[in-house]
């Protein structure tokens, strides 16, 4: 999604001279055009993420809308207090962009993974997080981030294009509609592609409604929640279960008195065997791979 991100940023920065972009010394072979387009509004703050977010808060105080960019874990954890105190508590238009959410940086290792980022950030005051599952969602999300002009986190990954006919409701998007609707899948971020692939299986095809959650905290319309009652529900997220989609959604459902017949949560399990590999390897270790998703869905039908 970096390509889509950079192109959309260029357009927005040309249209709005109050947009500033600060990078924590990253962007090689991705942000050069943006740097040229933005000139002095493109700032390399060096390898100093805490200062980067504090500086962003100061610039936002003076009327700028400030993007701060790094690899997801570096943009989230090191400067969490700066984001909490200086940005969120003051409701400043500072937007963190984390590249490679989840296990996106694969074999780079655990330091480069962000599997607790949404638990950290979506719990803060005044914040909205954006989790595109598909590459074409990046541009409209960026537009919304700039329009809302409040603290935000954009979690970038690598995703295909949104399936045709997708329909938005609250912070959810229905990407597959089933005639028979024998169960519900709700996925977070690009791992949604694994769920879609699981439905290539003949036994499963056409049996399930598939949704993505696009933002945390969630907004769940009653009508949508009601349609999920009495059916099995599978949650798929490349994020730890604590503070992630499954936990946040389960509270929403309980508050509304909605009871799925089953509630199965697939989430990032960290490093269960202490071994490392590609993003796909870690998805498999956590049961987020296509085969395991298909197994869970089969259980729903039998």
């Amino acid at each position: 999604m970096r390509k889509e991100f950079s192109a959309a940023m260029e357009r927005l920065a040309r249209e709005d001279e109050k947009i500033v972009f600060i990078t924590g010394d990253l962007g090689y072979s991705a942000l050069e055009n943006l740097q040229t387009t933005m000139g002095p509004r493109f700032i390399n703050a060096g390898v100093a993420e805490q200062n980067m977010v504090g500086v962003a808060a100061g610039m936002a105080y003076k009327g700028y809308k400030v993007f701060v960019y790094s690899i997801a874990p570096f943009a989230v954890y090191r400067c969490l207090e700066q984001f909490r105190n200086d940005v969120c508590l003051h409701n400043m238009p500072v937007f963190i962009v984390g590249n490679g959410g989840g296990y996106g940086y694969g074999i780079m290792g655990s330091s480069h993974h962000a599997i607790e980022d949404l638990a950290c950030l979506s719990s803060l005051q005044n914040v909205n997080t954006y989790i595109p599952a598909f590459a074409d969602e990046v541009e409209p999300m960026l537009e919304q981030i700039v329009t809302e002009a409040r603290p935000a986190y954009l979690r970038l990954g690598a995703g295909p294009v949104t399936p045709e006919g997708a329909q938005r409701m609250g912070t959810f998007k229905q990407i597959v509609k089933s005639e028979v609707s024998r169960g519900t899948i709700v996925a977070l971020g690009p791992v949604a592609a694994n769920a879609l692939k699981a439905l290539d299986n003949q036994e499963l095809a056409g049996q399930f409604d598939v949704f993505t959650a696009t933002n945390l905290p969630l907004s769940l319309p009653d009508e949508q929640a009601n349609s999920w009652t009495g059916k099995p529900m599978l949650i798929v997220e490349e994020h730890v279960s604590i503070g992630g989609l499954a936990q946040q959604l389960s509270v929403k459902l309980l508050e509304k008195g909605i009871t799925p017949s089953k509630f199965v949560s697939l989430s990032a399990q960290g490093y269960p065997d202490g071994l490392y590999g590609s993003q796909q390897y870690h998805q498999q270790q956590s049961g987020l791979d296509t085969a395991n998703i298909a197994r869970q869905l089969s259980n729903f039908l039998n």
Binding site: G54, G58, M59, Y61, K62, D86
Partner: peptide, 11 residues
Amino acid sequence: LPIGTGIAKAN
């Protein structure tokens, strides 16, 4: 200091 630095940069 980081915040003040950001304000100074904005100015």
